[in-house]
Every structure is written in C-alpha cells, then in structure tokens.
Amino acid sequence: MTSETPAALAKAAERPRPALSMSTGRAGDRIFAGLSRGSGLVILAIMAAIAVFLVWKAIPALQDDKANFLTSQEWNPDGAPAKFGIAQLVFGTLMTSVLALVMAVPVAVGIALFITYYAPRRLAGVMAYLVDLLAAVPSIVYGLWGLNFLVTKMTGVSGFLNSYFGWIPLFGGSETGGRTILTAAIVLAIMILPIISAITREVFVQVPHAHVEAALALGATRWEMIRMSVLPFGRSGMVSAAMLGLGRALGETIAVAMVLSTTAGIDWHILKDGGNTFAANIANTFAMSGPTGRSALIASGLVLFVITLLVNVGARAVVARRKEFS
C-alpha cells in the first residue's frame, strides 16, 4: 500500500489541477496539495486492491470446486475432491441478521423517541451516552458474554418457546438448545441497537419545530404528535438506519462464531443448536484450512463483501433521496 504513495504523489504534482487553481503556485503549496490528493488516491487504490485481490485469490478454489458453489450446503474445500458451497452460509447469515433487525428496530426507534421526546432534558445527554456505550463494547466481549451467560439463560427460553409456541414453524422441532440462531440473533440485535438508535435520533432531532407545535396546538397527545409529525418525517431516516444496522449485522463475526455451535445443513428451526454464517465460518475454520480451504474462505468472504456493499449503498441511496426532497 505504501509503495503507491510516491507514484500517486508524482502524478498529482506533475499536472496542474483545477482544484489547485487557488494555490499560489509555490513549491510548498504544490507539495501539500499533492500530498493530500495522494492520500485520497491511496484510499481509492486500497478499495480497488480489495476487489482485485479477493477475486484473484478466490478463483483457484472456485475452479477446484466439485460441488455447486451457490447451492451446495457442504463445506469441505480441503477434501479430495474439494466440495463446498455457500447455501447454508447465506441462509444462516440472512436468518440471524434479519431476526436481529426485527428485534432491534422497534427498540431502537423507541430509544430514539425516549431520548428526544420523553426523557428529562438534563438526563437525555447522559442516557444517550449510556446507549452509545453499548457500541463501545467489543464484539469479542459480547461473544464471551453470549457464550458463558446468555446461552445458559436461553436454553430455558428456547424450551419455553418450543413447548408453548411450537405451532409457529420457526419455533417447532423436537430439540431445543442455547447455542441457537435465536441466541445469535439476540446478541446481534444488542450490537446493532446503538447504531440504529443513534442515526434515528439524529433524524428525529431535525423534525421541524413548527410541525411538532402545530400538532400539539391542534390538541394532539404526545403519541399522536409523534405519529403525525415525527414518524412520517423520520421514515426514510429510519429505513436507512435499519439498513446500515443490517450491514453491520451481516458482517459481524466473532460474537456469532462464539455463540453458535456450528452444524452443517440448513435448518429452519431456530431454537435448535446449530447454524452457521459467512463470517463465523471463516473465523472457525481458518486455522485448520489448507491452501484450497483458504482460497475457498476468500471466495465466501467476497460474497459477503458484495452483499454488505449492496445493503450499504442502498442505505446511502435512501438518505440521498431524502436530502433531495427536503
């Protein structure tokens, strides 16, 4: 990476740029402008390198793959013949992340409303800080907590849900456990809570005072004011916050890797031990992988990268569209 800097610098310094037209043309100015421009170009180079090297190093394994990469549920890239596919990983990743999102979004919106419209003014700052602290806890600590504390509690919860709500297909099945997709989703929900609530809060603060006061002047209760003026105004902000949270959840590795007890195959019963995700699979199998195994993991990482990229770009697009309208 560092080797690209001088080349980028030289290129930037050679050509006069319209952006530099305000420069006095002194050597110091040219060098400084070149340096800052070069740094920006390094970022572009890194992004390009990420795409190029992941694709390049993924190709050998994909060529060796004797199973269908997209539909196979097996992960045995170092076997002879090498057989691996991402179907189970896609399922586990989407299942945990979507469940996490379903749990986190209502709570996060509630927190944002609480801090902007319900909490006493003086305490609101402290309360917002407390929620942000959730984001400061590293994922390995959530993993440790999830594995040693939450899993033991969730064994009972799973059993309860299974015996009373077993008629819901997701909660069905004959076995229940603690190291399940549901537990992983709960840990993920806690981890994405602060980012969703922080972004939602930012949008809620921008709601025009006139809207709020007009609603109240018409005799609305606080809830009716929120429903009529705050929520409609913040809708696109909430959507993009949820999508950014989803992007975070899709790529989360260590906490999920620790909580899930990985088993092969797609299983819709989220109360049963098992499941696997892209990131957890990489973390769990990397140390024992041979050359083909590593290449296969890079291929799966590439798929994860593309999925999160699409989700994130989608979220930004929603924000950008909202800016155009307001």
Binding site: M47, G251, F278, L304, T308, V313
Partner: peptide
C-alpha cells in the same frame, strides 16, 4: 462510505 461498511473479517 463504502469502506465504512466493509465487514471486519473481509
């Protein structure tokens, strides 16, 4: 922005 969204494992 894209970089912000890169999963750490990637």
């Amino acid at each position: 922005d894209v970089m912000t969204g890169i999963p750490s494992i990637v």
